[in-house]
Nucleic acid binder design. Structure first.
Lengths: 340, 340
DNA sequence: TAACCAAATGTAAACGTTTAGATTTTTCTT
DNA sequence: AAGAAAAATCTAAACGTTTACATTTGGTTA
């Protein structure tokens, strides 16, 4: 059965006009019961399925929202996406998801495609805060919400986690355990989380009158490999740090791998705390302490904001959510023996 | 700039007909250089972006493929999806992804929506092999490829990993280490991987003339919790197994959590091997042995098959790929001391 | 039972493209 | 320079809906 019946076929078979068929498909009422039954019967007999494409064409809405994430393999994002998806499905929206691998170019392309496809809104964790594509989106009047990473140059609804607070607390915890030589594995400094987590680190040191040692600040790109390399670098420093704070989950994993290879004893020779919980955290001995984020909530709120904006007639003011991360103290931050 | 320019606006501005504009948008050639320049200029000045919706309407193709997975939070799927996506983007296709949480109902709904939206093809890991939705897809003539889980009732292109072989090898390895009391944590028996992995387990036992002990066969649903519970059950058996084979990654994690709580010594009192590699594998002591699958390849092949089918005029025969899993021996399968 | 009214149904245009076929323009040939 | 051939361009229909507005139907009232 290659032939796809259209609303016209249904109309003919039920001996009514296409307008009435449309009316029953869309449950608009105002159709005599008997006619409706006839139409429903025709629909079933023909196996008619209405074309969302034609509908979108006329209504100028697609009930689709685009989601852009930098890396679908980072478990943080599936969790967020999962939150978005559940809410969206509930409201009759569907999601089209793209992972850009942190590529600015791919991200711009994806946005372009999303616009072509007429998405009703976009939720983005941008790899490219300053890109031209954000402007494009705004020019088209397409609602946008930024998640996890802010977009400062534009007025955009935003839902973030308090990175500064999170990393401040993490580093503070380390300090209170007596650590003075605390290293950080940074994320990219042109992203909100990368930048802010370094900021929180610095704030904590300053607060406790600890000097900032530039050699303890290592660069990473939120990928596992970079956490691994950074750890090696730290290990080979003339004066090693006694504690490491990693700016994200993947880099934490890389860091752990390096630690094992180097036989740099976690919890004894070096304490550790990471941003974002990781599956391995509770399987490593000692168990990893982490800053954990409410990922599902992040997604749900993001969709809610977007949905509001899609359906609001007047233009809403910019709204910002700042969720609190939670410090999960486990076992990887030990008292620094050197203190005593 | 709320107003969206159409092809007609471009045509007016460039003083040509919409047909010529269409020709340059689609790079079909046969347009004088000077005219083309004028048109391109007009496009840029107006910020024209062609409507994919209108285009799809006319061309009856959306350049979209639908992907259905049972659980986006299982890291196996992001990896597969990532493979699909990369290939797809390369060929100008976009993906719309839905995670069904193993729900048959959600899966049927999603398929319905995909059809409405006119996807050009579907890649599915079904939670519901026998569902009516598969038939629907076929009736509509929408190309379909099944991945990871077969759909036996219908003629469907399929790309699987050899589950029987994988679990056979895993269990064989355990047997060769001297284990006779080997337990399995099963997946749902109405899915290909769930069923086949049990089959491979049984085959191995039979091959080596070992009896099948029903109490060693525990039921799981591929979710972490069920692996956890199954392990507890095994632990409290009057006669404990000396080795456990877990049918998937999430259940392996659950199993590990239980092992730790129960202080059931991994590698000493109980050996372990799991289907699918997991992040935690190399962080646990002893390191977990696993059956690992080529996830990216899975996705890439699946897309390739789908793409072929979308573009082939004649109807292709059913094609099946069976990829080989790889046994990664690490440390969690020790010689069974009871042997000696 | 005629006239009227509300409810039900129908008509036709519009949404923004693509494309077959018609027409015009340019180029080539002699 | 005229005519033919080739190239460029245009016209108009079609894709499958939704919807404003027009028309018909059936029921109610006087």
């Amino acid at each position: 059965m290659e032939y796809k019946p259209t609303i016209e076929d249904v109309a003919k078979r039920a001996k009514v006009s296409i307008a009435t068929v449309s009316r029953v498909i869309n449950k608009q009422g105002g159709v005599r019961k008997k006619t409706e039954e006839r139409i429903v019967k025709a629909i079933n007999e023909l196996g008619y399925i209405r074309s969302a494409v034609a509908r979108s064409m006329k209504k100028k809405e697609t009930n689709t929202i685009g989601i852009i994430v930098p890396d679908i393999r980072n478990p943080f994002f599936p969790s967020v996406v999962s939150g978005i998806e559940r809410m969206a499905r509930d409201k009759g929206y569907y999601t089209i998801l793209s992972s850009t691998n942190e590529s600015l170019i791919v991200e711009e392309e994806v946005v372009k495609i999303f616009i072509e496809r007429g998405v009703d809104g976009v939720i983005i964790t941008t790899a490219n805060e300053n890109g031209n594509h954000i402007k494009l989106l705004q020019e088209q009047g397409i609602p946008l919400v930024a998640i996890d990473r802010a977009i400062k140059r534009f007025e955009v609804d935003t839902v973030l986690v308090d990175n500064i607070k999170g990393s401040y607390q993490a580093v503070q915890h380390l300090i209170l355990q007596g650590h003075k030589n605390i290293a950080i594995i940074c994320g990219p400094q042109n992203t909100t989380p990368g930048f802010e987590r370094l900021q929180g680190y610095k704030n904590a040191l300053e607060e406790y009158n600890l000097p900032v040692n530039e050699s303890f600040i290592t660069n990473g790109d939120f990928m596992e490999e970079s956490g691994y390399k950074a750890t090696y670098k730290l290990f080979h420093l003339p004066k090693r740090p006694t504690a490491i704070f990693s700016s994200n989950n993947l880099m934490s994993i890389g860091c752990m791998k390096a630690l094992m290879e180097l036989e740099w004893k976690l919890g004894e020779e070096v304490s550790f705390i990471g941003f974002d919980d990781v599956e391995i955290a509770t399987f490593i001995t000692p168990k990893l302490s982490v800053v954990s984020r409410p990922m599902n909530a992040l997604g749900e709120i993001a969709f809610q904001l977007l949905h509001d904006r899609i359906h609001s007639k007047e233009s809403l003011p910019k709204r910002e959510y700042l969720l609190s991360p939670e410090l999960k103290i486990r076992e990887s931050c030990r008292l620094n023996k050197l203190v005593f």
